[in-house]
Amino acid sequence: MSAVDTTFETLRSQGRKAFLPFVTAGDPNLNFTGKVLKELISRGASLCELGIPYSDPIADGPVIQASYTRVLDQNQKLADILKAAQTWTTELSAPIVSMVSYSIIHRQGLENYVTSAKAAGIAGAIVPDLLVEESAAFAEICRREDFSLIQLVTPTTPRERALQICETSTGFLYFVSVTGITGERTELPPEVVEQVGWLKARTDLPICIGFGISKPEHVKMLAPVADGLIVGSAIVRKIAEVEEKGEQAVLAEIGALADELITAINS
């Protein structure tokens, strides 16, 4: 069992649901990323997603895209991220999973990526551009290394296929709430509740919903059918203001947002 499995097992036994924030690694520097993770976990985040900046992120909206560009412009390398992660993860009480393009994993070598991420204390990977058909080799290594490979289902995924994805995904299933890219939305499509409910009745795998979530109303609508909710752009947008507002102010805002959303999740 990876740390992700243990986390969901504990949450389920306590009848609680997970809050999973997403943070871009190194935005605006790795030191601050470490502080944000610590703050989020101290507020009650169950698991954090660490976004590995990529030059051509197809599934990301302007907020996360811009954060990736900011980091890559500073010439930050994957090795720098893993080195920093190693120091954070020894202190953090919740697992970290990487959100990472297959271009990066492929370039590192599949085996090498998994072993070096694991050595840095990272518990798994969400690979937004790796489809179930292309995932056999990587999934095999992840299984052997007990590294969670979290796969995605979207509103356009046919139901049969969604079940097949549930079978190969480990840790949890990432249910994408919208047909689209990351970024906050005022409203989320109500069908997602029924879609996730349908899957939930057919799998034991924890299901977390992400994309577009930023408000307590979203959380209240989705929490009843999900094991956890993922929030990215709403946090990354605040981090982008660090230069203007200063680290303390931004950490306080992120903490307040986390409080608000966690309260809504378990209300």
Binding site: L131, Q151, V176, G180
Partner: peptide
């Protein structure tokens, strides 16, 4: 070749 895209595009 192959197909390395987000799941959202698979059906199309």
């Amino acid at each position: 070749g192959g197909r390395y895209v987000p799941e959202t595009l698979t059906r199309a």
